[in-house]
């Protein structure tokens, strides 16, 4: 074989490659093509083996001729490969169609839900923690002394009327009630810690309310207490306002108006901008634009004394409001009993 013959063979191979390349539209076809022409047993490799038939001086030139064709084929394949791969993937994805909503649900487990009241409680705790408060707890069954007397509510005090209590049938010296508010925890905190005290006290409380549509088996309050030197009404008002903005957002304001609680003096009711109408006046707020949220005031000197603190040295403020009530406002709950029905149809939507 001489060089011209070789050129003819190479040209035939090259032409054949070009023809088959057009037909190769899949990656498998490309692989076949590669193997047929530039693979170990491919047509080009066979030519290298025939180099021996060419006269020695011409062999380098012959090698170059073959190399040229081989390089062209390999370059063409390298160029073709990614384009074919892309096209192939696109074709697959274009045809791989499904309705994702058509899957039959086989299980309704998955994630559960936290109780909405717990959720509110945690939100409140976090806000107060952010304001520098600790979170304290106390017993749900309390002596009358902690629940009433220590809080400056002696027997027969008119303020006891509004907090009708469940009495427990026990033999002790003092009567035991299910606490009617979280305020007894204030006394326990003041007894067990020395000021400065900055604490909130969430918990379940019980009142013997009239059984009506809104009667629930207990409810939840959160109570705040600050006792330190030089605590003022100005601090109280500022704290209430800071909390209101933090919990409800910048559009909701707080206001204080005089009220009466035996355990605080001066006392105030605190109200916030109605969250339904944003202060315009609606049915929820009886047209006033304000919603009553809770009570607050400067800790009464008798309460400080009952807890063993000197009112000449320390002063403080306290506040309290309903966690369930906030939950009701947030979730727009019409009937609070849903909170204790443990109905999974409701709970899944929490």
């Amino acid at each position: 074989m001489d060089l011209s013959q070789l050129s003819v063979v190479l040209s035939d191979i090259s032409n054949e490659f070009d023809q088959r390349m057009v037909e190769a539209t899949t990656l498998a076809g490309i692989d076949q093509l590669k193997s047929d022409f530039v693979g170990k047993k491919g047509k080009v490799a066979l030519l290298y083996r025939q180099l021996g038939q060419i006269e020695a001086p011409l062999r380098p030139s012959a090698g170059e001729l073959i190399n040229g064709v081989r390089d062209r084929i390999e370059a063409t394949i390298d160029d073709l490969y990614p384009r074919i791969r892309l096209a192939e993937r696109q074709t697959f994805l274009a045809n791989d169609v499904n309705d994702p909503t058509s899957e039959v649900k086989t299980s309704n487990t998955g994630s559960g839900r936290i109780h909405p009241v717990t959720r509110t409680r945690i939100e409140l705790e976090d806000i107060f923690v952010g304001m520098g408060f600790s979170v304290e707890e106390g017993p749900e069954a309390e002596s009358e002394w902690y629940n009433f007397e220590a809080l400056n509510i002696p027997k027969f005090h008119p303020a006891r009327d509004g907090q009708d209590s469940f009495y427990l049938d026990l033999d002790g010296e003092d009567q035991v009630v299910l606490r009617t508010h979280t305020s007894p925890v204030q006394i326990r905190v003041m007894q067990s810690q020395t000021p400065p005290i900055y604490a909130v006290m969430p918990g379940r409380v019980y009142r013997r309310d009239t059984a009506d549509a809104r009667h629930t088996i207990g409810f939840h309050q959160i109570e705040g207490l600050v006792v330190d030197r030089g605590i003022t009404f100005g601090h109280l008002a500022s704290t209430i306002e800071t909390f209101t903005k933090a919990y409800f957002g910048p559009d909701v304001n707080a206001r204080l108006r005089p009220a009466y609680f035996p355990f605080t003096e001066p006392s105030a009711e605190f109200e916030v901008t109605c969250t339904i109408c944003r202060g315009e006046g609606c049915r929820t707020c009886s047209g006033t634009g304000w919603i009553e949220l809770g009570g607050c005031g400067m800790v009464h000197p008798n309460v400080l004394r009952a807890a063993g603190l000197d009112p000449e040295v320390f002063s403080g403020f306290a506040f309290g409001f309903g966690i369930d009530r906030l939950t009701q406002m947030r979730d727009e709950i019409a009937d609070m009993r849903i909170l204790t029905e443990n109905d999974l149809r409701y709970m899944r939507t929490i």
Binding site: G112, R113, I114, H115, V117, T118, E140, F166, L178, R204, Y206, I217, G218, L339, T340, N342, L344, M347, R348
Partner: peptide, 8 residues
């Protein structure tokens, strides 16, 4: 799911 059942 977190439940709240009656204390009483």
């Amino acid at each position: 799911y977190e439940a709240w059942t009656s204390t009483l």
